[in-house]
């Protein structure tokens, strides 16, 4: 069905015209002011990002163990080693699984939740706060609490409930490789959905009510309103949300580590855990640096791909 009277839908963008006017009028003052504000950030960027990344690149070609001041040059040996190490390959596989699955599942749960929270109902603010709450405590604390809930013994909270309701024996939530992987993803979805729903909610509230009124006049169903109005206008929100989810997923460490310490076996070991353990605890800074460099490239490519996809979708619907 064509929504003939529906106005052209533009993705929500920050208003920038007044900024441009200001730039034209007072270019000199703005550039100095910008410089003043940019300088500390530039220093932070150089000291905390550029220098460490350059050091990592250098160490990745050496056998640096974290202690000696003159490590030997080993060429690409550290890079070749990465692809032979089963624990590293397992960490790569799990990290990708975790990042992709949490990105998809959080998105498909956060959008319906945001739509629900956008409706008027009694106690709406309380419900919104309740869903947002998991984003407040430290992830490490969430991991410890969920470790208690998912304790694989019969004394675990969830296992006790299941036994009292069904009589079933303890389920090895964190002791079985597959269940441990699924459990870490499930806890992440629980922890992040509320936060991302609030993000979508902010964008939903910016959609003018006129659009829905016009579509109603044209006889659009609820699904059609969602498909042709809400969803296209949520694409910028999806771009932001999914970028955050994907980058956080790829560099995740705290939640799986506090839940399972990377086990059982290598099943929930993440790339960041490998980086930390190999680089610091195991004094293999050279090998860990090679992983960090490769990881940076992979994350960069994933983010670029995701941004290209988001831009293409925005162009299609704008």
């Amino acid at each position: 069905m064509a929504l003939s009277t529906t106005p052209d839908l533009q993705p929500l963008q920050p208003q920038t015209s007044s900024n441009r006017t200001l730039t034209r009028k007072r270019p000199h003052r703005l550039s100095v002011t910008s410089w003043v504000f940019m300088a500390p950030i530039a220093v932070v960027f150089v000291v905390l990002y550029v220098i460490p990344m350059s050091q990592s690149l250098y160490y990745s070609f050496t056998d640096f163990d974290g202690y000696v001041s003159n490590p030997a040059f080993v060429g690409f040996d550290n890079y070749a080693e990465l692809f032979k190490d089963p624990s590293m390959l397992s960490a790569l596989g799990y990290t990708i699984f975790y990042a992709v699955s949490t990105t998809i599942l959080v998105t498909v749960t956060a959008i319906p939740l945001a739509l629900t929270l956008n409706r008027k109902f009694f106690g709406r603010n309380l419900v919104r706060s309740a869903f947002f709450f998991p984003a407040v405590p430290s992830v490490a604390i969430l991991g410890l609490v969920w470790g208690f809930i998912l304790n694989p013994l019969g004394s675990g909270v969830l296992n006790s409930i299941i036994r009292s309701l069904t009589g079933l024996g303890p389920i090895p939530w964190l002791s079985d490789s597959t269940l441990a992987q699924l459990s870490t993803v499930a806890v992440t979805i629980w922890a992040l959905t509320g936060w991302h729903a609030v993000l979508y909610l902010a964008y939903l509230q910016a959609i003018p009510a006129d659009y829905y009124e016009v579509s109603k006049i044209d006889g659009a169903s609820s699904w059609q309103s969602f498909r042709y109005i809400t969803l296209p206008l949520l694409i910028p929100a999806m771009a932001v949300s999914q970028l955050l989810l994907m980058t956080n997923g790829l560099k995740v460490f705290d939640l799986p580590f506090t839940l399972t310490r990377g086990g059982p076996g290598f099943s929930t070991r993440t790339l960041t855990q490998s980086l930390i353990e190999d680089g610091i605890a195991q004094s293999r800074v050279g090998a860990a640096s090679a992983l960090a460099v490769l990881f940076l490239i992979v994350v960069g490519l994933v983010v670029l791909g995701q941004m290209a996809l988001s831009n293409a979708l925005q162009r299609k619907y704008s």
Binding site: N151, P152, P172, S175, D176, G263, G265
Partner: peptide
């Protein structure tokens, strides 16, 4: 029980 694969020292001490 193979569940010990996912248990910490604190958890078995508590049991």
């Amino acid at each position: 029980s193979p569940s010990v694969a996912g248990l910490t020292g604190d958890q078995i001490t508590s049991e």
